[in-house]
């Protein structure tokens, strides 16, 4: 149990450091978001509960939860919320803060896949689908990777036959021309955001 203070600042921190975090206080605890979520049964703490936990100052419990990583970005919660909270974005923002603070659960598959996706797309400016699949299969080492790849062999072969997966992408694949400008742009964007959000 973390040390509890009567006056806690977690809501304030969320407002300042989380994407769309200033809207958290608008939640009226109706639970429509939680009931609308396609992955609802898999959340340790559904959005409505997370919002109350934020107000209650449960920083560790919220940020180390795997709940936010269950978001499929289906936007069902956003369109149904009677208070118009941008819940999807707040979940993304909480997940990102958790990750930057080193509190995201270790080995959480969507946290890992999200980082792989970002690294993949930022390298050449466009997604390399073959390398993305392989990096996911091989994330837990070579032996497990071969097993995973074998298990998904029929899916891969089906796509290849349909001309929708290119083994030659391993050698390069699609990319943008202005990679240096693109990388400089992303570096600057990250610097600005890190300064504003006080992310180390």
């Amino acid at each position: 149990m973390s040390e509890m203070k009567y006056h806690n600042n977690f809501l304030k921190e969320v407002e300042e450091r989380v994407e769309e975090g200033h809207m958290v206080k608008m939640c009226m605890q109706c639970g429509v978001c939680s009931g609308s979520c396609p992955f609802g049964p898999h959340w340790a703490h559904p959005p409505q509960e997370l919002f109350m936990m934020i107000r209650a100052g449960k920083r560790e419990e919220v940020l180390s939860s795997d709940s936010m990583w269950m978001c499929t970005s289906c936007y069902q919660c956003i369109v149904r919320c009677p208070r118009k909270l941008p819940i999807t974005h707040i979940m993304h923002g909480l997940a990102y803060l958790a990750k930057r603070e080193g509190l995201a659960p270790k080995g959480q598959p969507t946290a890992e896949f999200g980082q792989m996706f970002w690294d993949n797309l930022t390298k050449d400016g466009r997604v390399n689908e073959l390398k993305l699949s392989l990096s996911l299969y091989f994330k837990d080492g070579f032996g497990q990777g071969v097993k995973n790849a074998m298990a998904m062999q029929s899916v891969g072969m089906g796509l290849m036959k349909a001309g929708r997966l290119n083994p030659m992408e391993i050698l390069g694949g699609h990319k943008i021309k202005d990679k240096s400008g693109f990388h400089a742009m992303l570096k600057k964007a990250r610097e600005i955001e890190d300064a504003r959000r006080k992310l180390a």
């Binding site: 994407e19 990102y96 896949f113 999200g114 970002w118 992303l186 964007a189 992310l199």
Partner: peptide
């Protein structure tokens, strides 16, 4: 960035 880009990219990037 698609729907999963937030995990590594945050908001502004």
């Amino acid at each position: 960035g698609a729907s999963i880009g937030y995990g590594g990219g945050g908001e502004l990037p």
